[in-house]
Amino acid sequence: MDRIIKCSEAIREAIDQEMAVDERVILLGQGIDDAKGMWGTTLGLQKKYGEERVFDTPLAEDGMTGVAIGAALAGLRPIHTHIRMDFLVLAMNQLVNIAAKTRYMYGGSLGVPLVVRAVIGRSWGQGAQHSQALHSWFAHVPGIKVVMPTTAYDAKGCLIQAIRDDNPVLFVEHRMVHQAQSHVPIEPYALPLGKARILSSGTQLTLVATGHMVMESMRAAEVLKTLGLSVELIDPVTISPLDSATIFNSVEKTRRLLVVDNGWLNCGFSAEVLARSAEHFQGAGNISYARMGFAPVTCPTTKALERQFYPNVFNIAAKAADMIAPGISLSEELCPEAPEITLFRGPF
């Protein structure tokens, strides 16, 4: 049986269902036991599973990541949460030098079954240190998987798989995506990591988007449809290991590839997708490539500038339209600001 729920509800359900069947699963993170419960994603879990399995942590990202790794080495399956991805910078040493390398540098004798949840912020002035998307940093390092689902259905299935996975998995969420709703089965189910999802089929352009940019790109695709333009929208879901084949198959057909990453461009995920595609096709058949992402600056707080920092429905649609049919005109009025941004109220 399924019903429509929010992504944040799907995340909570995934944790709850895995904790119910596997006593090794523990949940730790700053404030996970408070009244807000990390936007509802951890609400009630401490009461249900006890303070030993579900606990608040000191403000010590580096140390607590090491603690989570140590618990994983001892056979537990920790889920360590961060309310902002920016805080992961404090945990880089443990994630990169230990979690990602343990299996390899000890010759496969042990591994780190750890899930790290990190939430990217946006809007209401999240600014320089509450809005960063660092998935590309982690995808650079062998030994750690990076997942970034954008539908409630994928969020539940991927989180369950991440918890069951014997590798360290970085599970990237987005504050704007938390509100997204979709059909989600009540029963537990696991989705394979490393499998992209085609969100809408099309023939003229392959649009690969990540994080909140998936929601924006979906709207852009709808706008383009009204102009008679056909876009195939692909959500990679897993950033690393990347399902290149699904992207290549699509580009084979459309001959146009636009990547809209929820992050900066320089040395990032968008560059990886284009590079793989260029290597694969080797210039055969005149494929056009483009990418969009955050402006190459620190994220500003004021709305007047923040609005320009992110790709939006209009400029994604305009870029795609220009690639398919150069010169075609597109009215900005067709592309209002995303409702989750307009409606979002802080302070958090």
């Binding site: 090491g66 140590g70 001892a74």
Partner: peptide, 12 residues
């Protein structure tokens, strides 16, 4: 770096 892992192992 191994110090917090020892703490986590002991917690487990």
């Amino acid at each position: 770096t191994s110090i917090p892992q020892a703490v986590g192992y002991a917690y487990a």
